[in-house]
Each structure stands twice: as C-alpha cells, then as structure tokens.
C-alpha cells in the first residue's frame, strides 16, 4: 500500500479527475442532515472536516431500495437489461467502509447474489477519516480504522490530504490525476499522522462500552426490559433502513392494469414489521415488538459473530440519531449491563 499527497489548493481539481471514471456522488446537506447526492459541479464536491454520515448509508448504491428483478407475462419472463453507471462515492467514513466489507461477505457467502455483485463492481469508494460526531462509537466497535474495502482513503493533515491507495481502481485514479496526487509526501508526515489519530481518538463523546455484549445478549434473553422497549417501539423500521448493515428484503409481484404482464420487485424490508416472520396459516413466529427488537439486537451484537466472526454493528450511531423513541445500541447496552 502506498500513500500520496493531495494539496488542499488542488482539491478543486479532484472532481474533474473522478468524473473520468463515472458519476461522482458525495454527501450534500438536506435540511439539518446529509444525503448522498450526485455532484454536477466541481465546486459542489466538498470534503468535510468532520465525519459525515448521510441518513441512508452506502448500501443504497449496492442494493437499491426498490428494483425490478424480472419482468413477466403469465408464462415467460425476462431479466431487464440494466445500465449500472460506475459511481465514485466520496467522503465515506471508516465505519461505513467496514459496513461494505460486511455486505461483501454477506452477499458472497453460501450463494453469490448477482444483483449485488453487478453494482459492487461499479462502485468506487473514496473514504475519509474525520472528526467523530456526537453519536459515533466506532472506537468501541473496532471500526474506527479501516484496512481494506476502499479504493482511496483521505486523512486531513492540515494543508494537504494524505491519500492511501487501497485498490487497483484507486491506483488508476491517482495515475489519471498525476498532476494533483504527489508522491512527495512531507517529511513530518508520520508525526502529523500520529497526531491526527491521537486527536481523533480523544474527540469521541459517546463511550458506550460494548465489552461482553455478546454474552450479555444471551444472559438477558428473558429480561423484562425487552417488553419495556417493545411497548415503546413504534415498529416504524427506521433503524433498519438507516443501519448500514441491514440487508433484509421482500419480494412481490406487481401486475400491470391489464392483469397479464408485470414485474417482480425486490425492496427493503424490516424485521420490525409485524408480518416479517408470518408463515402460511397466519402463524407468526415473532408476533410481539419485543421479540422483533430482540431479533435485531441479537443479529447486530451477537448472531453475526456466529456467522462471520465479527458483530454487524459498525458504531455509526445512525440508530441513535434516528429512533424517535430512543431505542438504540446505547440504551439497549445500558439495559444489558443491568
């Protein structure tokens, strides 16, 4: 792996380099929050000092919230030709890159999901380390540092960015932008890099302690607080929509008005919804909200370890920001600890 220098005075030229590779997307303000949006003018590509966590994470590029799997007539079907543009997404924080690594594992284990892979191959990720926000706890979930999964990764070291090259595509970008990416990294870079990391680690305000939560989930299986959370929960599913590692989907057939032709659609589902575990004959394996909440936290904090060796919570804090009734990793972990 190698690291290059991008002077801040050349930052404005970055857009034109990236444009050569595909559409450029980055966080842009929307109301009081941010969303990933397509950047059309170079002055709109802003690299923020702080970690920006758009409401809907990178997963939206990899599994669209709603798409057509196939089109059909009563006896035939076809797979729609899709023109998936190469997308360069800029400013992705470390936690969200960890989430993409988890998605990669998930979608390639047991069976490979081609709908995901087709999009994954077209996604170029430019990561950025920034000042953590008030809800961030990636230092506690061990996702504050990223070693793989990005094409380029930026550190803000004052008047320049230190840019790590993490893939062949990343290398293509720095070659294409040879006039702005410089091999001549200042001599004091190590000192500045260490300083940056030190300052960053000191700036976390959310210090939720995840030590032992896996075992605590088991010990609290029948704890009454699940029912208390269940009573409060609105089953709105927002936590699952904003979670960067939530992947559940539903599949339905939509018929055209003629009643003859239609399309099969796959769209985001949520384990918070009542019919999530409903089977034939109206038997519901998770009738109560408490059971469904417990399923989600089991999956985030415990079950994923059994499957993939690490928890699937990456510490982004979106559930803290989003849940209207304060059910989130922090409040659940507090209860787990008794």
């Amino acid at each position: 792996m190698r690291a290059l220098k991008l002077s801040k005075k050349d930052e404005i030229k970055l857009y034109d380099v990236l444009k050569e590779f595909g559409e450029v997307w980055a966080p842009v303000p929307k109301g009081s929050k941010y969303v990933y949006a397509k950047i059309e003018r170079k002055e709109d590509l802003v690299i923020h000092e702080e970690c920006i966590l758009p409401i809907i994470p990178v997963k939206k590029f990899l599994m669209p919230p709603d798409f057509t799997m196939l089109k059909f007539t009563p006896s035939k079907y076809s797979i729609p030709e899709e023109d998936i543009p190469t997308t360069v997404v800029v400013g992705v924080p470390a936690c969200d890159i960890h989430a993409v690594n988890i998605l990669d594992k998930f979608y390639t284990t047991d069976y490979v999901d081609n709908y995901y892979m087709k999009r994954r191959e077209k996604l170029i990720i430019l990561g950025k380390s920034g000042t953590p926000g008030e809800n961030c706890f990636c230092h506690k979930s061990n996702t504050n540092i990223v070693e793989e999964g990005y094409d380029l990764f930026f550190f803000d070291l004052g008047d320049y960015y230190l840019v790590w090259v993490g893939s062949e595509k990343g290398d293509d970008i720095v070659r294409k932008g040879a006039d702005i990416f410089s091999e001549e990294v200042p001599k004091d870079v190590s000192k500045k890099f260490v300083e940056f990391r030190k300052n960053r680690n000191k700036s976390y305000t959310n210090n939720v302690d995840l030590e032992g939560v896996t075992d605590l989930m088991e010990l609290n299986y029948d704890a009454p607080f699940w029912d208390e959370f269940g009573d409060k929960c609105l089953a709105c599913g927002q936590c699952t929509m904003v979670c960067p590692t939530c992947t559940c989907f539903n599949v339905i057939d939509d018929l055209a008005l003629s009643g003859e032709t239609g399309e099969r659609r796959r769209y985001w589902d949520s384990c918070m919804f009542k019919d999530y575990s409903l089977v034939a004959g109206q038997h519901n394996f998770r009738e109560s909200k408490a059971e469904r909440l417990k399923l989600w936290y089991t999956h985030k904090l415990k079950a994923f370890i059994g499957h993939f060796g690490s928890p699937s919570c990456v510490g982004c804090g979106r559930c803290i920001e989003t849940c209207p009734v304060d059910i989130n990793v922090v409040t659940v972990v507090e209860k787990l600890k008794g």
């Binding site: 998930f106 284990t109 559940c248 989907f249 089977v279």
Partner: peptide, 24 residues
C-alpha cells in the same frame, strides 16, 4: 422446520433464527 422466506439463498433475512438461516 418452517419459516417465512423470500429468497432461499440466505439473503432476504426472514427465516433467520439467531445466526442460522432456515434456508441455508
């Protein structure tokens, strides 16, 4: 056993029980 499922490939999530997928 029986569970709700939408994919059969361990992706849609509906059949999950702890860390096991009923379909896998």
């Amino acid at each position: 056993l029986e569970r709700r499922m939408k994919c059969g490939t361990g992706k849609c999530g509906h059949c999950i029980i702890d860390y096991r997928y009923t379909c896998i």
